[in-house]
Simulated scan of single mutants.
Amino acid sequence: MGLTRFGRPKGGKGQSSPNLYVANCGPAVGLSYDTIAAVFAAFGEIKGVYAADESGARVVVSFAEEGCAQNALNALGGRPCPELGGRSLHIRYSVIQPTSQGRANDSVPVSLLASDLNIPGLYLFHDFVTAKEEEELLAAVDERHWNNLSKRRVQHYGYEFCYETRNVDSRKNLGELPRFVSPILERISMLPNCKDDEAIVLDQLTVNEYPSGVGLSPHIDTHSAFEGLIFSLSLAGPCIMEFRRYLEGGLPPRPSSSSDFEVECSEKNSNFLRRAIYLPPRSMLLLSGEARYAWNHYIPHHKIDMVNDSVIRRGSRRVSFTLRKIRTSPCQCEFPEYCDSQRLNGMKFQDQ
């Protein structure tokens, strides 16, 4: 369900409205939209019940007439409601705010299968590791040192990723990948998408720990840094990953500096394609071809995700294992508009 934009009436607290903002009420606290609508319908015709934000615990109830909304507010506001699990509802008037022309939609349908997204080169393998293996992998990284970023913790193996340059120094090898990922590497080599692929000799691992509510801004892994196969194993908690392909100008504007591996994308630019997929724990995501080179991937900063009509709470942490092979020569992919190697070569040619 998309998030309709609501706000306070311009006249202040005293101005009424046919729309009510209702807190302590919603799917995250066990109350379906149908149940909420049935309770409020006792006061008049309901036009709809909408998510007020991404918490899952606040909704907007929209009546056909202001008088009905006023009666509901007077009857239910600040009082326990037996029909809604005895919860005390915090209610105020709300109005629909117009959406800016050209703004991207706030929501995108979430798929459970990679094939539904129609993005060439994108694959998702469910239950890639067992629950016991997941526990062992988490224990292995928790025994090692974490580096703190602004919102999450990371570990690097093989080669360290430099967040300032969004690249790696191939001359600084940190050693072989840890033994605890050997079963994962062996299993990857058996995937039908990876047999006989020279790039399967993965030599760089980044482990990310995301606290609840923390995600990633849209970005494409730097072409000049890594080869064409990128694997990401999700552990401990689920998330939604969104994919965006910008239709003009290739990459979104690059920030002047960054302390994180993120390329900020302007939300004012609505000229992009959007897809989204649900990544359950223990699943392996593979980015290759167009999915790797041309689509930004992005994890929304949510504590609760809506997957179809279900509310999915993110765990207290989500840990990802991202496995890649560093690139030692310029990228020659088929997507030059997104490729830093080919853009750099083009600028050098123009200067000659």
Rank of each mutant, 00 (worst) to 15 (best):
L89Y: 10
E135N: 08
V59S: 02
L124Q: 14
A52I: 04
L84D: 00
L76C: 10
R58N: 10
L124S: 01
L138G: 08
A104P: 11
A38H: 15
G85W: 15
P98S: 05
L73V: 07
S32W: 13
A42R: 15
G77T: 05
R103S: 15
N74L: 10
C81E: 15
A57P: 00
E45Q: 09
A104L: 13
A41K: 14
R103H: 11
E54T: 04
N118V: 11
E133P: 01
V95Q: 06
N71E: 06
A51K: 07
F128G: 00
R152L: 13
I46W: 11
G102D: 04
Y50T: 01
H156C: 05
Q97K: 15
G121H: 12
F43N: 04
L73N: 06
L76F: 11
V39N: 06
G56P: 09
H145P: 00
A104C: 10
V49R: 14
S150F: 07
L112K: 12
F43I: 03
V49Y: 12
E135P: 01
N118M: 12
S100M: 11
P80E: 04
A139L: 13
T99E: 14
V129E: 05
H145Q: 13
V59G: 04
G121I: 08
V61K: 09
N118P: 02
V110D: 10
N74W: 03
S55V: 05
R92Y: 02
T35P: 01
W146S: 03
E45W: 03
I91S: 09
A69D: 07
L138M: 08
N148D: 12
S55Y: 06
S107V: 07
S32Y: 13
V59I: 15
A57D: 07
S115G: 02
D106T: 08
S115W: 07
Q70K: 15
N74Q: 12
R103P: 01
Y33N: 04
E143D: 14
E66S: 05
S115H: 10
S150E: 13
S100V: 13
G78M: 13
T99Y: 02
L73M: 15
L138D: 05
G121N: 12
Y93H: 14
Y50P: 07
R92H: 04
V141N: 00
F63G: 02
L89N: 10
A75W: 12
